[in-house]
Design a protein around this nucleic acid. Sequence first.
DNA 1: ACGAGATATTTTAAGCTTAAAATAATTCGC
DNA 2: GCGAATTATTTTAAGCTTAAAATATCTCGT
Lengths: 182, 182
Amino acid sequence: MADIPIFGEGEVDAETRANGAAGHKDELRLWLRLLTCTNLIEAEIRSRLRSRFDVTLPRFDLMAQLERAPDGMTLGELSKRMMVSAGNVTGLVDRLLQDGLLERRRAPGDRRSSLVRLTAAGHDSFRAMAEAHGDWIGDFFAGLGDDDVDALMALLGRTKASVRGAIEGQAGIAGEGETDNV
Amino acid sequence: MADIPIFGEGEVDAETRANGAAGHKDELRLWLRLLTCTNLIEAEIRSRLRSRFDVTLPRFDLMAQLERAPDGMTLGELSKRMMVSAGNVTGLVDRLLQDGLLERRRAPGDRRSSLVRLTAAGHDSFRAMAEAHGDWIGDFFAGLGDDDVDALMALLGRTKASVRGAIEGQAGIAGEGETDNV
DNA sequence: ACGAGATATTTTAAGCTTAAAATAATTCGC
DNA sequence: GCGAATTATTTTAAGCTTAAAATATCTCGT
């Protein structure tokens, strides 16, 4: 098997070869474009955070989660919200503690877990970064009109739902109750 | 400075606080949604590649670049196309060589660089993965109609242009000649 | 109160990633 | 040809990331 095309669809050969047998060419191109957009933005944010604030993106993300939780948050909750592993959070928190941006205390009712929150320094530091970050994002999307932004939001909302459907309900459990938090 | 709101825009307070002073709320939400979609898909691909093919996503990406270059490609070219650092490619190539999926030879006219390409085993291995990969992508976007896919492609195209404009031409060099390769 | 299972976190091992410094080879101007 | 600047790659140091195993604690049924 191999050399003989099963379906004849015009210029299938070269395209299908990079594709697998089924016809997912458009979706594949869409995925690559989505990935390119995200990587482009993410790399630039990463680079600016590093050069202008000497901070990594994961650290910024963690601080962003904490900024609206004045009473602190458990590592487990951070892990869930950031969609990263628990071990990852352990390391990030360690390093932020060393930098004096976070403080940690035992959780009141549960000796297994602890709460972390921003220190005053951490809060100030984050506020400065967040302001710049917001401006950068504004600039990145400045070439889109309000209607484009709305349309993209809607389409990405459908995309997210489609992906979640494909991942979770392999057999079709549709109306997920998950709070969207993004 | 700080406590006194400069503009009064209704429910500004809570929103602006997470936002910086300017009004980038919608763009910020758009960015987070874009990021969520991409992360969702990427994490699932990563997980399936690992569990079903025992391969990492960077390795898969590298092999994908090589698949259409039967005569091989330099590490520098791989670095450019994959949009990762040169040192990164060095390590990936090393590991793929060890696994027998790549072969390496000196570049004909330039003793600084070398060419790598897929071995027969690497090619076979990639083809199997690429077929599954294409199917997964098809499933992830199955909830979108053809019109949605087209609309997304177009909007993401504009987004990419907007971001590149914001990054490169800080002062406005618009019509970049770059081949898009994605 | 006991123990089984669940939950929160840490540790470990391996790999990915980058920026910056180090090597090595090429190109180009003169 | 010589040397300076450029280019290709590797090395290094630091941090990010994950899955899986290990700890510690909690919850619940009985």
